[in-house]
């Protein structure tokens, strides 16, 4: 849509109405992992647990693949999908590394060195 200037920001998906509608059931599934018994049920049989939710096949596959960027593209919100990470015993930093396509060591080192620079990351138009 032309009236969404934030689509110009690279590597970023704003969790707006469009994403929220797309991801409703995916995110509600993630929310269910706040209960210990649901985490157990999910771990015991991921596919069966996912099938309890009216999610799209693509969304289910993205969860099974732990494809964190794909989950976001399909309407996931990071505060929801991070509950899958918590279930897996992964930290925010570990999935952030995966989403930005580097090893955890590289990512941690980047953060220690002051983080990812905003230069070149403000607008798709300045990206080479």
């Amino acid at each position: 849509m032309t009236d969404k200037p934030y689509h110009d920001i690279p590597g970023t998906v704003l969790f707006d109405a469009e994403q929220s509608r797309k991801g409703f059931h995916l995110n509600q599934f993630c929310m269910s992992l706040m209960k210990a018994e649901n985490r157990e049920a999910f771990k015991a049989d991921e596919r069966a647990y996912l099938d309890r939710w009216p999610m799209s096949e693509e969304q289910k596959q993205a969860v099974l693949d732990r494809d964190w960027n794909r989950m976001i593209a399909l309407g996931g919100n990071i505060y929801f999908t991070s509950k899958i990470a918590a279930t897996d015993g992964l930290s925010f930093q570990q999935i952030a590394a995966k989403m930005s396509g580097v090893s955890q060591e590289e990512y941690a080192q980047m953060m220690l060195s002051g983080g990812r620079s905003v230069e070149g990351n403000r607008s798709k138009s300045e990206k080479r």
Binding site: G11, T12, V13, A96, M99, S100, M111, R116, N121
Partner: peptide, 17 residues
């Protein structure tokens, strides 16, 4: 303050901002 937890731009920090 500045942080981004998602996507390829995760880890963004803008100390000047």
């Amino acid at each position: 303050m500045s942080h981004q937890l998602q996507g390829p731009r995760a880890g963004l920090i803008n100390s000047a901002f």
